[in-house]
Structure formats: C-alpha cells, structure tokens
Design a protein around this nucleic acid. Structure first.
Lengths: 129, 129
DNA sequence: GTCAGTCACTTTCGAATTGGAAGTGACTCG
DNA sequence: CGAGTCACTTCCAATTCGAAAGTGACTGAC
C-alpha cells in the first residue's frame, strides 16, 4: 500500500504526514538510515534508543509498504537485506533537521552535521530560554 | 515538570524532541494553537481530525507541564481558559513548516501560508514522484 | 424555580499498541 | 556436533488510544 493509496483522515498536510510518520520509532529509523549508515536490522537495533525487535520489524515492513524505504538483498545464504530510503524517505531530511535544531536548542541534545558527518555531543549548548 | 527536568533516554536531539512531541496529537494541537487561532478546549476539539476529549485534555495538561504552552483564564464564571504557546512552543514552527512541505509534496495535503493565513486546499499539487 | 443546553473536562471500557524478553529457524564456524 | 549469530516472530503484561457516556458548573429561557 503505497502513499498514493493511503486513505487519509484529514486534508491537512501536517495531519497527513503525521499519519505516516507521526510516531517516534519511525522517525528514529529514518534518521539512522538517512545519516548514520545503519541499514541492516542489527545495526538499526543497535542504536542508543534500543528499539525493540518487534517494533523495528513492523516499522520496516510498514515503511516499505508505504514506499518510504526499500530493501535489497546483500547476501543470499542466508538471505540478508539492507534497507535504503527511497526519494520519499530522503525528502524527509528537512523535517529531521528542524527536529534536531529544536531538540538541540531547547533540550540540550547533540547536533549532527550531515554534510560533514560530524557530531557535537549533547549538553554543549547553553540553555536558550 | 519542565523540559529541563525531563529525563531523556537518548543524547540525540531528534530522539529527545520525539520524546516530547513525537506523537501525532501533540503536533496537531500545536499546529492549531500556532496558526489557526484555536485556543480553547472546544475550538481545539473542533478540528477536522476530531481529537477525543480525553486525549486533548491530557495533551494540554502535559504540554503545559512541560512548558510548551501555558493557559490563562479569559473568564471567571465559570472559569474558562485559553491556551497559548510559550516561546518553546512557538519555536516548533519550522518543524511544522517542514512537515507541511513534505505532506504537501508527497501526500497531496493542503498548504497553509502562516504569514498571509491563506490556505491552498488539498489535492491541488501534482504528484512529485 | 425548573429545565435544557453548553462547556470543560473526567470516567469507562474494549481495542490497539508498546516494550521487554524469550523463542525459532537458517545459517556459519570451530 | 554444538555454540554463536542474525533476522525476525511470538508472547504477555502494561500502557495508550478512541469512542462514548458521565459530571459539574454554569447560563438563559420559560
């Protein structure tokens, strides 16, 4: 069921977007795929937030069905997949950037620079409030 | 319990942000407060997405406790409150804007221009995929 | 005064999801 | 062969959701 066959409960773009990605695990998976080179089940499972395996499996399946990501086999015996964001998935990057900016400014979270792949650790900015 | 006393499960800004606003009702409430002049319980309840009253009450209470919004009485008998975003809440606007851009581009959602308060209805953009 | 309507919640309860842990099958390797 | 690894799946208690009904404090009409 791709994005174009999903029945939405609202005409509003934000509400629609949140129906697709409005839970925290989905965006965290997309973050890891987008920026951190984590593209296998085990790598995604190994993030700091420690997503439970059943939720990770369900999210990957769902995001694939929606066309946000796709998987491709990188070996055959046993078959193993890597997961890759589609253009729909990649185009969520500005959302991630703004979330990160807010989390950095208001919550003292760390800052990742996607272009240079560098991180500023959490807690290094003053509280801007 | 304000943002500065919340215990986070991750150092990552995005994960932290999602711990605060990573459910769909929260951001929809913030959207209505931010752009649509819906600042009373009844007005917020009347949005197209039809948030259930118990969830709305809980989200308002939680967001107030976190310092994302505040409430002020606009009448006394019976006492009635309006809800207003704090600076923390208002600074989520770029997140909303990017969500809207993605939802508009990929999901044919409508587009709202906050500066002019004008809306382009859902379904008016071609599918850019 | 009574009654119906309004509003801001609260409560109820079944359904759905989450989260943590254990389990399973298909491998690989010593 | 057995142990370890990986990608899930299953299980189950806890939590959250969603829809509807309930409640209390009003207001206004009769």
């Amino acid at each position: 069921m791709k994005l174009d066959s999903h029945e939405f409960r609202s005409r509003c773009s934000i509400a629609r977007a949140l129906e697709i990605i409005g839970d925290r695990w989905t965006l965290l998976v997309i973050r890891d795929l987008m920026w951190h080179g984590k593209d296998t089940f085990l790598a995604l499972q190994g993030s700091e937030e420690r997503i439970p395996a059943n939720l990770l499996a369900q999210r990957l399946k769902r995001l694939e069905a929606l066309g946000i990501l796709r998987r491709e086999a990188y070996q055959q015996r046993p078959v193993r997949y890597r997961y890759l964001l589609t253009e729909e998935g990649l185009s969520l990057e500005p959302v991630l950037l703004e979330l990160m900016a807010w989390g950095h400014a208001k919550l003292e979270g760390g800052f990742y620079h996607p272009d240079t792949q560098r991180s500023v650790p959490a807690g290094t900015s003053g509280r801007n409030r």
